[in-house]
Design a binder for these strands. Sequence first.
DNA 1: CTTTGCTTGTGAAATCAATCACAAACGAAC
DNA 2: GTTCGTTTGTGATTGATTTCACAAGCAAAG
Lengths: 211, 211
Amino acid sequence: MRPAKISESAVRRLSLYLRVLDAFELAGKTTVSSGDLAERGGVTPAQVRKDLSHFGSFGKRGLGYPVSELRERVTEILGLGRRWRVGLIGAGKLGAALFFYDGFRGQGFDVVAVFDNDPDKIGQRWGRLAVEDVESMDRVARASQVEMGIIVTPAVSAQQVADRLIESGVEAILNFAPTRLQVPPGITLRNVNLEIELESLAFALTHENGA
Amino acid sequence: MRPAKISESAVRRLSLYLRVLDAFELAGKTTVSSGDLAERGGVTPAQVRKDLSHFGSFGKRGLGYPVSELRERVTEILGLGRRWRVGLIGAGKLGAALFFYDGFRGQGFDVVAVFDNDPDKIGQRWGRLAVEDVESMDRVARASQVEMGIIVTPAVSAQQVADRLIESGVEAILNFAPTRLQVPPGITLRNVNLEIELESLAFALTHENGA
DNA sequence: CTTTGCTTGTGAAATCAATCACAAACGAAC
DNA sequence: GTTCGTTTGTGATTGATTTCACAAGCAAAG
C-alpha cells in the first residue's frame, strides 16, 4: 500500500510505535492491541489504528497486532530495513557528541564522513575516520556515498554547507544551525533548533497561569 | 491582550519572526511588512498577520510593522524580557556541547547548575560551575533557583531525573533522552529526539518518488 | 481635500488532523 | 455451531489550523 500523503506527525508517531514495539518484544509479548500501543505511546487507540491503516491492515480483529510482524512492517515502512550513510558537517562539540552517540548506529545510521573548515580540526582522527576539509565535500561525500547530511555548524556557514551537500547529491538534511535554510524542491529538510525549544518553554512558563 | 489558546506551532513561528526581526534591525530597516517577514520566515503573509494579531495590533495599514517596536513586543510575548535559570542534567558529551554553546546565553538562558550521577564527573569544574551529584538536586536546584531543566542523560535515567526535577520545583523540561516521559499536568515538556528526526528523513527518502 | 497605492486586521472558507462510533471479524467457551 | 467478549478498520464527525479575500486605514502626491 502506497498512501497518497502521510503527515509529518503521523510518521513521527510511527517511530514512537516502533520503540514501544521493541519494548513489548523484549518483554516477550506476542500480540498487542491498539490500546496497549496507545497507552505506552501517549496517544489514543484510534490514532494508532488510523496511523497503521494508512499502510495496510496488520491486525486481527478481536486479537490485536502480532508484535514481531508489526515491528518488521513498521521498520520497513520507515525505511529502516537497510543502513543509511550519514555525513556530519561541523566537528565542534555538538558534532562530536552526535558522532560518538551510539543510538544512531543502533537504529541503522552510520556516520561515514566528518567535515569542518577549521585547519586545526581537518585531519584529526575521529574513531576510524579523519576530519575532512569542507572544500573537498563534493569528492569525499560522493566517494563515501553520503545519503543524509547533519549540519552542526554555526549559523553563518549553514546555508553554504547545505548548498554543497545538495551539489554532492545529498537529498536529506538535518539542520541544527539556528537559521532557516533554503533548499530546492525534492530535498527533505528537518530543523532542530534548541533556542526555539527553550523559547517555547519560556512562553509556556510566562503564560501558564491566566491570573 | 491575553489570548485564550495559542498553538504550539504559532509560538514557534514567533521565535522565528524574532530572528528575522533581529536581522532586519541589524540591516537598518525601520519597518517591515507581513510579506517581508513571511518571505524570510518561509511562511505566508496571512499567517504572519494572524499570528501577530493574537497578541494585539502592532502594525500600521499601508506601512507595515515598526521593526524595533515589534521586536520588543515579540520578545515580551515569548517571555524573553528577562533571563531564565536553567539546570542541565547529564554531564556527557551532549551536555558539554550544550553547556558551552553560546547561543543560549545570547537568548537569555543561563545554565546555573550541572548534575551527573557518575562519581568521576561529580566535582569536575565546568566554567565557573562544579558538576553536582544528582542526589543533591533538590537542595542545589532550589538554591540556584533553577526554573527549567534540560535532560541529557541516557534513556533509562531520564524518568527518574524528570521526577526529581519536578520535586525540586522545576516546571519546564526539555528532554533529549530518547524516551517518553510522564509528567503531571502543569509541567511543560518538550522533546527533542534525534533518532526520530533521522527516521523521518529515512521515511522521506524511501517514499519520495511515487514510482 | 481628494485620489491613489499599499498594507493591516479579521471574519469566512477551506484544508488538514484527530476523534468517534460502529459494523465486521476473530477466538474462545460451551 | 452458536453465542459472547473483544478488537480492528474506517466512514462520518468534530476540531484545529491555515488560507482567502476584502473592508478599513494610512501616507504621499497632486
